[in-house]
Design a protein around this nucleic acid. Structure first.
Lengths: 121, 121
DNA sequence: GTATTATCTGTTTAATTGCTCATATAAACA
DNA sequence: TGTTTATATGAGCAATTAAACAGATAATAC
């Protein structure tokens, strides 16, 4: 392993392994790619939204059913669904007055599966 | 499809499709299983932590290298690493004064991959 | 047209979170 | 021993986020 040498970078930070940093810079993701990933993870980083997504995993449901299932207000469910809708994680279809929501993306189920596997390992 | 009938649940919420709710209740996850999944997602729902994890994906790095890479203070990196360490997403080894951090779990890489695939689809 | 039902949206308030600064360890070495 | 270096930690501030409530739509029935 190359000897660690401390010196100052352009940015003023201490740098010990400059080659390792250069490598990390080459492989780094775009700033807004990281931001969008963070936004996706934020969307699933909430118990209510996770419960909603998990419920929708087994079939479509309407707002008031979700409210009854989670025992929270319909307004709260609607707010959460708006966020999920904005990120295109769920979509809906209208049948008369009722809006049925469903998962919009296979990746969501994959994320849930990996997280659950991590939990249960 | 069975006709939707509105009535009141024990909890006071409107219930339109009681059978669908009952099914969702049977398949629902435990409350603290959901909470732990949310906690895991929260850990990766931040640009700084995502950048750290992505960098560690290609090999171990020390605190000051990460600080130089992300152009944030070493204190900030250390705080984020503590969170990731607490959740056992990263671990470290000491070599003299230097602590080298690495990913502690294959699931993290899977999560990053799925999120990235979702982004780029 | 009006009334009702299911859902949505805007605003305010309360709780969380990330960062900075100052201080505290912990290992290495003189 | 004391000093330096790399990292950790605690407190406080600023920014973000969630929940609650009130009011607004959109489809249906009358």
């Amino acid at each position: 392993m190359p000897r660690a040498t401390t010196h100052e970078d352009r940015c003023g930070c201490r740098v010990i392994h400059s080659e390792r940093i250069a490598q990390a810079r080459r492989q780094a993701l775009e700033r807004d790619e990281i931001a969008r990933m963070a936004e996706l993870f934020k969307a699933v980083a909430d118990s209510s939204r996770l419960s909603i997504l998990w419920a929708l995993r087994h079939g479509e449901m309407c707002v008031c059913d979700l409210a009854a299932l989670l025992a929270i207000s319909e307004s709260a469910v609607s707010h959460q669904l708006r966020l999920l809708r904005t990120l295109r994680l769920v979509s809906n279809r209208r049948d008369g007055v009722i809006l049925y929501y469903r998962l919009n993306d296979d990746h969501i189920e994959q994320l849930l599966d990996v997280a659950l596997a991590h939990e249960r390992e």
